[in-house]
Design a protein around this nucleic acid. Structure first.
Length: 399
RNA sequence: GGGUCGAUGCCCGAGUGGUUAAUGGGGGCGGACUGUAAAUCCGCUGGCUUAGCCUACGGUGGUUCGAACCCACCUCGGCCCA
């Protein structure tokens, strides 16, 4: 059986590396549903667009008739994946992991089809392993091989601690592949080392090795580092449409192409020709970013929400007009110290920060810029307090 | 177990008895500019209605008029030796 070229194009869209391509073709050519593996450690409950790159790929496999096996790493999460890390991850309790796993699944199935997915917990096998079996597993790899790994090497050379249990992680992930008989394992490029361990372990027991399919690491909104919660450069899939739209719309220019490629199904020829127009100075990148933002917001919130978010964005940036749905802060009529109002509204974390913001000229009350942090304002009816670009609050006098 | 070095604000990193809430960089935030951005420039970046007070330099005690800085013990980490 030959492989449909269109299907192949879909499956390889955005893919950085396949180990190996021939093996994948051979597996696909069997014409049988393949086991597509994704392992997750629900260390943080919120899924952001960075994770969706891989999830979208899973979905594409599903749409071609394959089945997804989601491994919830309830055991591995207690070890902590050292991939790309420069320090030891904090170890989570088992209960925390299970709790996170629930919210995780909920979000996961916004993209992946639950009907074609099997969810398993790797604690099912790891909790039953004997020490002898663990030792055997450890015998599969040498210290030198471990230290060859980029992130371990860096940490080791930088004099950063590496706990021994972190060496266990790649082997555990590989063992997962053995247990579920994975045909293909998906992951970011940072997963290469771990995925390759799966191939070795499968071969070691005489089974067909899984194929590793690697996707790029999505950069975060700062345009510099990978999207990650700890760097605060994420776009969460549960974020309100407005926030999502805004972040995508103000994306650094350099990221636009990769976001289209990894997060949408829009044909790349189309995207590239538009990018060429922008590069030639024939059009403004706003249009493209608007299209990107609408497309992605639509995926998670629907077309209406996307339309509204786009309008809202325009309203705010066109100048005078205010956004709809400004949070309301009710206070007693009379004199109020602005920094305290800002703190109460949750726009700033402390009165001191609010004071500074005023001194920096970032705060206005009813459209009038405040110059002095000491002066109070009179609240008589309804007022608009604005701090910074996006901090709006409607101050309402309590009657 | 022995030796040795180290732990400073969101991060990195200066400071080694007295205007030190603590140089500098990164990041973040605000302002100008702009295409929403980027780049650039300016300002801010512990808390408190602030000429002042409080909290802070791994922890606990101590020395001293006075400590991030000196001493003791403890905790954690790197390296070398076993």
């Amino acid at each position: 059986m030959s492989i449909d070229p269109k299907a192949w194009q879909t499956l390889t869209r955005g893919v950085v590396e396949i180990i190996s391509e021939d093996e994948l073709k051979a597996k696909l050519a069997k014409g049988k549903p393949l086991n597509i593996k994704l392992g997750v450690d629900p260390t943080a409950p919120d899924i952001h667009l960075g994770f969706t790159v891989v999830m979208r790929k899973l979905r594409q496999f599903q749409d071609l008739g394959h089945r997804v096996i989601l491994i919830v790493g309830d055991y591995t999460a207690t070890v902590g994946d050292p991939s790309g890390r420069n320090k030891t991850r904090p170890i989570l309790s088992h209960e925390e992991v299970l709790r996170n796993a629930e919210t995780y699944k909920q979000q996961f199935f916004k993209i992946v089809d639950p009907a074609r997915t099997t969810v398993v917990y790797n604690g099912d096998w790891f909790s039953k392993m004997t020490f002898t079996e663990v030792t055997k597993l450890l015998a599969q790899i040498t210290v030198a091989q471990m230290l060859e790994r980029e992130d371990f090497k860096n940490r080791y050379e930088a004099g950063q601690p590496i706990s021994l249990h972190e060496f266990l992680y790649p082997l555990m992930q590989g063992y997962d592949s053995v247990m579920i008989e994975a045909d293909v394992e998906l992951g970011g490029t940072d997963q290469k080392f771990n995925v390759l361990r799966g191939r070795e372990l499968q071969r070691a027991i005489g089974k067909e090795a899984q194929v590793g399919l690697f996707l790029p690491i999505l950069l975060g909104t700062d345009g510099r580092e990978k999207m990650s919660k700890s760097l605060g450069n994420t776009i969460g899939i549960d974020e309100p449409p407005q926030a999502m739209y805004h972040k995508l719309y103000s994306l650094p220019d350099a990221l636009v192409e990769s976001y289209f490629q990894l997060l949408t199904d829009i044909p790349m020829e189309e995207v590239r020709s538009k990018l060429a127009e922008v590069a030639a100075g024939k059009s403004n990148p706003n249009g493209l970013k608007d299209e990107l933002a609408r497309n992605i917001v639509t995926q998670y919130h629907g077309a209406d929400a996307a339309e509204k978010a786009a309008e809202e964005e325009r309203r705010i940036h066109s100048g005078e007009a205010l956004p709809q749905d400004i949070p309301v802060l009710q206070v007693k009529a009379g004199e109020h110290w602005v920094p305290a109002l800002l703190t109460q509204a949750g726009i700033v974390k402390s009165n001191g920060e609010g004071r500074r913001m005023i001194e920096n000229g970032g705060v206005s009350f009813d459209g009038e810029k405040l110059a002095d942090a000491k002066v109070n304002v009179q609240v008589t009816g309804e007022h608009i307090l604005r701090a910074g670009k996006r901090g709006f609050v409607k101050v309402l006098a309590k009657s």
